[in-house]
Design a protein around this nucleic acid. Sequence first.
DNA 1: AATAAATACGACCGGTCGTTCTTATTTCCG
DNA 2: CGGAAATAAGAACGACCGGTCGTATTTATT
Lengths: 212, 212
Amino acid sequence: MTSDGRVARGDRTRTAVLDTAVSLATEVGLDGLSLAQLAERLGVSKSGLFAHWRSKESLQLATVDRAVTQWEELIVAPALRAPRGVRRLRALHEARIGFYAARVLPGGCFFANTEFEYNARPGPVRDRLAEAFSRWSTFLERLVREAVELGELPADLDVPLLAYEIDALGISAAMRSRLLDPDITYRHARQGLLNRLRALCPDPTLLAEGPS
Amino acid sequence: MTSDGRVARGDRTRTAVLDTAVSLATEVGLDGLSLAQLAERLGVSKSGLFAHWRSKESLQLATVDRAVTQWEELIVAPALRAPRGVRRLRALHEARIGFYAARVLPGGCFFANTEFEYNARPGPVRDRLAEAFSRWSTFLERLVREAVELGELPADLDVPLLAYEIDALGISAAMRSRLLDPDITYRHARQGLLNRLRALCPDPTLLAEGPS
DNA sequence: AATAAATACGACCGGTCGTTCTTATTTCCG
DNA sequence: CGGAAATAAGAACGACCGGTCGTATTTATT
């Protein structure tokens, strides 16, 4: 288990490339992303990228994986620090809106952008995106179900439907915040979830005043 | 006001080209759309396209306009045949979901696809898309406001917020129906709106059983 | 019948795309 | 110190890109 300076350097390069690729993909698309463009932004030669990924497609797949990791670190992980139930659901939504508002990625949301880009383009990239989305959807439903089990949401709640509605509020925020007024958009996304949860949750103290 | 057979032929070609362009753009994107590809699908020469649009960008703009017209014909117009108020809101949403479910466009929704594609790409195309989206958003708010004025929705309702929520249900349907289970997706989109309106509307007879 | 306009075509331009091949530099290991 | 492995660069490829040009065909006008 000795640390190899060669692969360490390669790893550093790889993550730097993938972070840039995630960001760039939200601007020009995961397919529109060109290797020359990516190499230039990194100050690297185009053929240098082929030393790490044998094809553009494998780089695209790695980019999707990197975006998943970034999403887990910046949105899922903070939410998991909130207590289970409606508060965690709200924390997740807030982390998501905050991610968009902080303009971490120029295109807003890597997944919203790429999933629309590939929804009619069969192939490995689309499959990878669909799988990531499926896992996200399942995760959301799990959080809703936990809130039901804690008695913070009605027992007869349509769990997948509420998960659908919560995600819809977020996707819409990603889209509208880049085309219409961002502040109004974020307010709607936040207020929409808050109203929804408050109408369903018997304990109003769990959903106190909003942050700002 | 004599009918000119030359321009008539040109018009026929133009609309045929634009219809194909709208459809193709939902597959490969409005930017990813290549003139050679489009020409080949139409059985037309590439240079023939330049006889009608002087550049790719002007064809993209015309494609957006054509998509707007298609949207108005297939979704807005049928909804306007329903009586004002919550029934019209529901009819609009149903027409939209029906449009996605009928797979009129392979990518589901021209606007969802292209607006995500261009949300970080300044230029005339993005401006045109943003304007179309803004008008759609305003239209949705007007329909909600009409329902309030008719007493079918509470007077103190946050009109833009409900419009945001309704559109969010639709956008999400466009995305999920192509990556996850379409039938479940449409059910969520429909039930989500129905629950929302029923909870707000004092007259339950206005929102009777769903179609299927 | 002759002219002008609208429409469409095939050939071709410079440029960029993803990809491959060869070569050079850095770093670990014996 | 020297060979092997990993990482990078450079040059070149065939394919496709948006776009231009000259020309042919169809149609309306005179």
